[in-house]
Amino acid sequence: MESLTFRHTTKKPLPGAKPQAITGVVASGNLEVLLERVLPPDACEVAIETPITGYGPVWEAVVADFVARAEPGGIRISINDGGARPDTVSLRLLQGARLMEG
C-alpha cells in the first residue's frame, strides 16, 4: 500500500454547508472518496491510500487539476483506491465536490 497526501491553498471555500459526503465504492478500477468540511476555508487536503504503487506524480497532477477546477476550500478529502484510472479519480472528486455543494 502507498499513502500519499497533498495539501493545497485555495482562493475560496467550497460553496454549500453539507458537513460530509461519500461517493464511489472500493472495487476494481473504482475508488471511494470521503469529503469532510473540517479545514480552514482556504485549505484543502487530499489523503490517498492505494494498493498500486509508483503513481505519485499522476495522483499529484489529478489532484492539482481538481483543486484548480473546484476550489474545494475547507475540505479534507480521504480516498481509498481500488486501482482507479486517472479519469475515474477526476470524476469521483468532482462528484464529491458537487455533493458537498448540494
Partner: peptide, 10 residues
C-alpha cells in the same frame, strides 16, 4: 486487510 496489501473501505 493492510497485512495483505489490500485496500480498505471506510
Amino acid at each position: 486487510l493492510p497485512l495483505f496489501d489490500l485496500p480498505r473501505a471506510f
